[in-house]
Design a protein around this nucleic acid. Structure first.
Length: 668
DNA sequence: GTAGGGTTAG
């Protein structure tokens, strides 16, 4: 009989159950008792042959203990259907289940989505008189919690006369899984009031409830209870309360608790590190990661996955490589999460090649692996490769794209100007979100299809979203469509009158048309309103140190040498017949109107990179604003003159300047 | 011989 056929008829028959539950009498009873005392056989399934019956032939005496061992072995291996089949076979062989049997079969029923089997096991439990056994009760609660919800599990709990802290806590967990933290917390306090002895798991579950509730007030009550019961020094309790503070966005209180913890394990370190990283306090996260290693606590896969996003920035490239080295040195398991975090770190810190190497080595790529790489290629100017990868995912794997994967694919279509492909993807998104709409707008406007953009925006009634307007503006910039651009900038100011960047966008439009009186008026408006537009700045990492440059910055110790280098490069470009294109898109509201690319922050960072590195080292520079046209043109030339690749990250994409060309194909 | 728990990635 094939496995599939076995499964189709694997419901537990009444006949089998009746046979198994017949009273055992005479010599058979004695034989079983004897065996139970002297021949406890631990059995594991043999090899990978998927038949439940094979090992049974090896059981010399078929007693319940041996069957239970086999059931557990299948369960541990994740073969839930085998577990259920073995249970059925066990009944057919006339072996009576005991209170150890039923929880295993219930768990298997839950894991295999076999709701009817679980209910039959419930009936067996009632008939055999195990329904009030505390282990059976918790297994039943877990089973009903999964299929019918926490309320039904609560009925089993209320009917049982064997309540213990495990069943109280399990019910609380089931409510947490249904996003009902207040019910979970109420249960905890009812448990405390019923004089049930408190333990660490109950406290940890209650702490999770407080975190989900975002109630630091309730969390502090737990802290008192923990102190009163002497459980506060327990590492599990400490870690749970630490996470509670972070969930309540109280990072300072979390840090104070962390500092006071008598013993800090890898989980505690990982929790506090992820707290800082998720709040954008990357340097503190990195400091703590190093402190952890110095204190002799070995980082685990969770820790490296938590710290890598802190290195997913240009100028943190060396931190990222350091963590990668640490993973290899310490032989930390490269599970998909670690690989995905590493890939993302390399993508975001400017090395798509390194990300690609890791991607190719992942044997079981999940949806995040594919998405990171699709978006990665797009961000690095290879949208076409991103789209190929999407098709490869569909053809070579069972992974299904989710909304983020579709967003990455649309992004790739946008950078590669693949309009038809983009439309096709958009149709496949079941419930498109604002981000998807904005990406479609970006795709159409970058392709210069402004009439279509207008129709799309009207049809979907999305014109009142700033994200959509900004997407349109991207296309206007690429196609130098100043007329539409000004209209959109006006609309953006109406939508967000307090956002200084909108005025700068408008100002840039008028500067490009040389309408200096309007530019001056807008500057005054910005000043009068007390708005503070972002100051342009660029940064570069050289020998583990980050160097930051502003517009016309002369504060760097090697400033003179930097400007000298730039001047030489400009002379060389001029000698080769390169005429600088003037771009009046001002980066800084206080900047001189006739800005020269020599003083722009990215040029200073690149020049510093050139005088500080040797050979063909790739320079990686990041900028907080879009690069202007003249700097873009100059950087293309410079890459050819110096024979180095220059990778510049701006808020939208990475520009790879190499041999006189840029990966963005001058569309940004 | 069995149950409830704290940390991670787009």
């Amino acid at each position: 009989m094939s496995l599939l056929q076995s499964l189709q008829c694997c419901s537990i028959s009444t006949q089998a159950f009746t046979k198994a539950t017949q009273p055992i009498k005479g010599p058979e009873q004695q034989r079983r008792r004897h065996h139970h005392r002297h021949h406890r056989t631990q059995i594991r399934p043999i090899g990978s042959v998927p038949t439940a019956y094979q090992p049974l032939d090896q059981i010399p005496l078929r007693d319940t203990f041996a069957w239970n061992s086999l059931l557990r072995a299948h369960l541990v291996d994740g073969n839930c259907w085998q577990t259920i089949l073995v249970y059925r076979h066990m009944l057919l062989c006339g072996v009576r289940p005991d209170r150890h049997t039923l929880p295993a079969v219930l768990r298997a029923s839950g894991l295999s989505d076999a709701s009817s089997n679980g209910k039959q096991v419930h009936a067996h439990a009632l008939k055999l008189g195990f329904a009030s056994d505390s282990y059976v009760v918790t297994a039943l609660m877990e089973f009903y919690g999964q299929f019918e919800g926490a309320d039904i599990a609560g009925v089993v709990f209320n009917c049982s006369n064997q309540k213990n802290s495990v069943s109280w806590t399990l019910l609380a967990k089931l409510y947490l899984m249904e996003d009902k933290p207040s019910f979970a917390l109420q249960l905890f306090h009812r448990m405390v009031n019923s004089n049930m002895e408190l333990d660490v798991v109950a406290l940890a579950t209650a702490a999770r409830a407080c975190g989900q509730l975002r109630s630091v007030h309730e969390g502090k009550k737990l802290l008192k209870i923990a102190g009163r019961t002497g459980l506060e020094s327990d590492v599990l309790v400490g870690n749970s309360l630490l996470k509670m503070y972070l969930d309540c966005e109280r990072i300072e209180e979390a840090r104070a608790l962390f500092d006071q913890m008598p013993s800090k394990d890898a989980v505690a370190w990982t929790t506090i590190i992820s707290g800082y990283v998720n709040n954008g306090v990357f340097n503190e996260g990195l400091k703590l990661f190093r402190a952890m290693c110095i204190e002799g606590v070995a980082p685990v896969s969770f820790t490296v996955s938590a710290i890598l996003p802190a290195c997913a920035r240009v100028a943190a490239y060396k931190h990222g490589k350091e963590i990668h080295g640490c993973i290899i040195r310490r032989q930390i398991h490269m599970n998909p999460t670690v690989s995905n975090a590493l890939m993302d770190m390399y993508v975001k810190s400017g090395s798509i090649e390194a990300a690609s190497k890791i991607f190719n080595r992942i044997l079981e790529k999940d949806v995040i692996s594919w998405t990171v790489m699709i978006l990665g290629y797009s961000l690095h100017g290879r949208g076409d490769r991103g789209i190929s990868l999407f098709h490869q995912m569909e053809e070579s794997s069972t992974v299904l794209p989710d909304r983020t994967t579709f967003a990455a694919a649309l992004h790739a279509c946008s950078t590669a100007c693949m309009v038809e492909e983009g439309r096709h993807f958009f149709e496949f998104i079941q419930e498109p979100e604002l981000e998807h709409f904005a990406l479609m707008v970006s795709l159409l406007s970058r392709a210069g299809l402004f009439d279509e953009v207008r129709a799309f925006v009207e049809d979907h009634r999305i014109g009142h979203h700033a994200m959509v307007q900004r997407a349109m503006l991207g296309g206007c910039r690429v196609h130098r469509n100043m007329k539409t651009g000004k209209r959109i900038a006006e609309q953006l100011i109406e939508l967000e009158p307090l956002n200084a960047e909108n005025y700068v966008l408008m100002l840039n439009m008028y500067a490009a048309s040389r309408k200096w009186d309007v530019v001056e008026g807008l500057r005054e408006t910005i000043r009068d309103m007390g708005l503070k537009p972002k100051k342009a700045c660029s940064w570069i990492e050289v020998r583990r140190k980050v160097h930051v440059f502003g517009v016309g910055d002369v504060s760097h110790p090697r400033s003179q040498r930097i400007y000298w280098e730039l001047e030489c490069l400009m002379k060389r470009m001029k000698a080769e017949g390169h005429v600088l294109e003037k771009d009046f898109g001002l980066h800084d509201v206080d900047e001189e109107r006739e800005c020269i690319p020599c003083g722009h922050s990215e040029m200073l960072a690149v020049a510093f990179g050139l005088i500080s590195t040797q050979g063909s080292t790739t320079l990686r520079v990041a900028k907080n604003l879009s690069v202007c046209r003249s700097c873009h043109a100059s950087l293309k030339m410079i890459s050819r003159i110096v024979g180095k690749e220059i990778v510049l990250k701006d808020p939208q994409i990475f520009h790879h300047f190499k041999d006189g060309l840029c990966s963005c194909r001058d569309m940004w």
